[in-house]
Amino acid sequence: MEKPTLTSTLKALLYLAPALAVLITFTVYPILQSLLLSFYADYDYFRDIVYRYGLDNYRFLLQDPDFHLALRNTAIFVLGVVPASIALSLAVAFLLNSRIRLRAFFRTVYFIPTVTSIVAVAIVWRWIFHSDYGLMNYVLSLFGISPIHWLTDPKWALPSLILFSIWKSLGYNIVLFLAGLASIPETYHQAARIDQASAWSRFWHITFPLLSPTTFFVSIVSIIGAFKVFDEVYALFGGSPGPLKSALTLVYYIYLKFYREQDYAVASAAAYVLFLITFVFTLIQLYIGKKRVHY
């Protein structure tokens, strides 16, 4: 690489300018503006007049039971979706990576949830979860379990959402894991077979550790994605945060504050809380990753 000179820097900036202009206008500026907005204590949104700045919005979040509920639900959601989704998608990817008939067909099938419109699949799942005619309750009835009000019982709304989201997230993770598995040279498995490792030992001692960079990436992307869950809630509960707000998540809370209650400053503050949470989690993961994903 040559050393950057003033001319070359200016030249590069010229090339970057169009993309930068769009990014700054529609991403960077709003991000900074909403940070500012989260500190508006007394303001006129439409005329853009601020009478007082302060931490009032953050203080409000601290004592708002809805926000606490959203935090709690989101935490449960992340814990419910991410490990299960990673484990399942790894298992499916592992099976799809082995020599089976119709491999390409199955790979396509498992990717369908990812490419299909969430509204469309939510309609299907609303039927699956239907308490009277749904597939879930039908299957449960075969085992003599009485019908569950999946989407209308506050106790079951969040588990339903988690099930739906795991299913929805599988395809993308499977593709990532398949790429990771394909990048592990076959000779390690051959060597392990010669070293008398059983199929399970080969997976646990060879494949899984060698896959750790992929697993690490998938877990970061999945956790960030899970913290931001909104579409799934909106689509599955038909534009409500579930019965008695039982599936209220952080982003749904932000959405409610912003669009329904026009409480823009509180919405911004909540958005920044969400940002901080995901940021901290990502830092923790990077720290762990640096220590563990090494070979």
Binding site: L210, H294, Y295
Partner: peptide, 10 residues
């Protein structure tokens, strides 16, 4: 002993 030795890198 494999051509590339296939030592487990981790």
């Amino acid at each position: 002993v494999f051509q590339n030795y296939a030592l487990y890198p981790h």
